[in-house]
Amino acid sequence: MKKRFSFYIGSYLLRHLQSMLFSLGRLWRQPFSTFLTIGVIGIALALPAGLFVLLQNINNLSNQWDDASQISLFLKQDLHENQIKQLNIYISSWPQVTETNYQTAEQSLDEFRELSGLGHLLDTLPDNPLPPVITLYPQNENLSADDIRALLEKLAALPEVVQAQLDMEWLQRLRSINKVLARGVSLLALLLSLSVVLVIGNTIRLAILNCQSEIKIMKLVGATNRFIRRPFLYTGFWYGLLGGFFAWCTLLFAMSMLASPINALTIQYASDYQLRWFAGALLLYLPLTGLFIGVLGAWIAVGRHLNSIEPN
């Protein structure tokens, strides 16, 4: 009997669909152990993903402050308003400087009162303790770190200036810390992915031990290793896929727990920064990663054991 090519394709896909549903049904019949496995995989995937989200947020935040490398000039308190205005114009004419911003002592006081919440404390002081401030933004693109340091010294040498402060060192430190963290997160992600492979491998190994006599019988009636392997690979497939979704839900839960305290924090820093956690991308990548690792772990486990089970 000659069969058409499309028949073979159709029956091939049908067989895959069958073992896909068969292994899902098998997991469904053992809900407790299935849930445990999915939980372990989910948490192992959620940890590196959560760290990744944290890192991305820190990166975004520090990028937002990239242009904010600014120099604050704290001026002497007994200067006259006109003197300061002239100084401001003088500095803004320098080629290294893009923009300047003059803030009187009173304005500094108002700002401090508003942001610190210590207004009533200030009212008890006889004089305004805050100096007038000129904030200036150096031309970042064309200036090296040395140029900026030279600019800083030149500014500090001006007679009206008490102190010139560069608000950038902490940003550079944050960036270095960020790099260390990123490396650490990659390592951690690698280790946790490895543990997912091991978890799935071990689960499949136990499943194979349970099915040993079944595998023998299937071999006796002429099943190929490929045929026997298929339902186990789909078991790994489901574990990984569901574990990935579980990881996503874990992150969703964690983010909703963090959202309101972070909001409160950003309001205090007068920032409109929004916590981003790439829900859409992660909903795609977490299950995909889980699926890939799940099939890989199943493949390794089945390959090791299938050859050792021969009918006897």
């Binding site: 079944e214 019988i217 009636v221 002429g222 190929t224 045929f227």
Partner: peptide
């Protein structure tokens, strides 16, 4: 080794202990 499964399909095996699932 790879051809063994296809070879076994030409033989019907019956056992004392049935070997049923």
């Amino acid at each position: 080794k790879g051809k063994v499964p296809y070879y076994r399909r030409q033989i019907g095996l019956v056992f004392q202990d049935h070997n049923l699932l």
